[in-house]
């Protein structure tokens, strides 16, 4: 009897729907929210498409006034002369030179540092180093640019006895600092992801730690390291403020690291303020943006491809 009463009370609290059919009214709210979450999920796709769309829409208008041939192959970027010329070549050359310099500096240092962190450093040092490297990536580029002006440019001028320290080299050195965290973090992840068995097997065969690193670990992590370098290159090409502040910005094709150079990024940032909306110059800067975006996207896609391949090999 007592049991029956208790059952009754329970029934009052929980009336399970015996019918398992979905309740429209109840699930409608959940359905709507799930659709909203899906929309949020594809924001990145929408934003990325919008970026491409807006750059193309505005940038391609340039070719009503300027031929594609002139834009791609002319060696002159004179947007505000009486006879304006919009040749992107010197800007591409500037970007590539500074990026190449930065990568030459940051790859050996970055990969070496990544190996040190993942294989040599004791655990506590490892943690401190990781924090320092993350902090390096958090330093605003404009602060590095400022130090470039007040410190590094002077050093470059005096060391190489130049008339001006605002050179491609100055830019490369600073940009290498910005590419380093990317290269180190991703290489370190790649080496860390390797199975413990690799190390054990190699050491058990009588190899030294160094032999294990250079013969087993680095080759096994090579895809990840290559992806790290690619992403580092992407970071270097896209860097704006630092290069704008320290490379002198002469729009001519640089022949050595010790002359002034001008990148695509710096051109957009520096000249946009002088343009009128929908003028040829305005369109030209968007067209430069398209070239820049296509370069970085290609680099990213290659990095993604390499990383995916690495992941598959890992299985």
């Amino acid at each position: 009897m007592a049991n029956a009463q208790e059952m009754l009370v329970t029934q009052d609290k929980f009336t399970h729907r015996k019918n398992l059919k979905k309740d429209i009214k109840h699930s409608l709210g959940e359905y709507i929210i799930e659709k909203i979450i899906f929309c949020l999920g594809i924001t990145s796709v929408i934003i990325f498409s919008l970026i491409f769309l807006f750059l193309l829409r505005t940038g391609l208008t340039l070719f009503r006034d300027v031929s594609l041939k002139e834009f791609l192959f002319s060696k002159n970027w004179f947007p505000i002369s009486v006879n304006p010329q919009y040749g992107i070549l010197p800007l591409v050359a500037g970007s590539l030179l500074i990026t190449a310099g930065a990568i030459l500096i940051s790859v050996p240092i970055g990969v070496g540092c990544a190996i040190y962190i993942s294989e040599v450093a004791p655990p506590k040092t490892k943690m401190v180093l990781k924090v320092i490297i993350e902090f390096l990536s958090a330093i605003p580029s404009v602060v590095l640019g400022f130090l470039g002006i007040v410190v590094l440019a002077n050093w470059v001028r005096i060391s190489f006895s130049l008339s001006s320290g605002f050179t491609a080299l100055t830019g490369s050195i600073l940009v290498s600092l910005m590419a380093l965290p990317t290269i180190i973090t991703i290489s370190d992840d790649a080496i860390n992801a390797l199975p413990k068995e690799y190390r054990e097997a190699s050491l058990a065969l009588g190899a030294t730690k160094w032999e294990t690193i250079i013969n087993v670990l680095v080759p096994a992590a090579s895809s990840g390291i290559i992806a790290a370098i690619m992403l580092g290159i992407g970071r270097a090409i896209g860097e704006t403020m630092t290069v704008m502040m320290v490379t002198g910005n002469a729009a001519k094709i640089p022949d050595t690291f010790l002359t002034s150079a001008r990148t695509m990024t710096a051109t957009i940032a520096a000249e946009m303020g002088d343009t009128v909306r929908n003028g040829t110059h305005y369109h030209a800067l968007f067209a430069v943006g398209i070239v820049l975006l296509m370069m970085t996207t290609c680099i990213n896609l290659i990095a993604d491809f390499v990383l995916n391949r690495a992941r598959k090999e890992g299985r």
């Binding site: 399970h16 398992l20 059919k21 979905k22 699930s27």
Partner: peptide, 12 residues
């Protein structure tokens, strides 16, 4: 069945 509410099911 397609129209079954898994939440109601898991409560039972």
């Amino acid at each position: 069945q397609k129209d079954v509410d898994v939440v109601a099911l898991r409560r039972r």
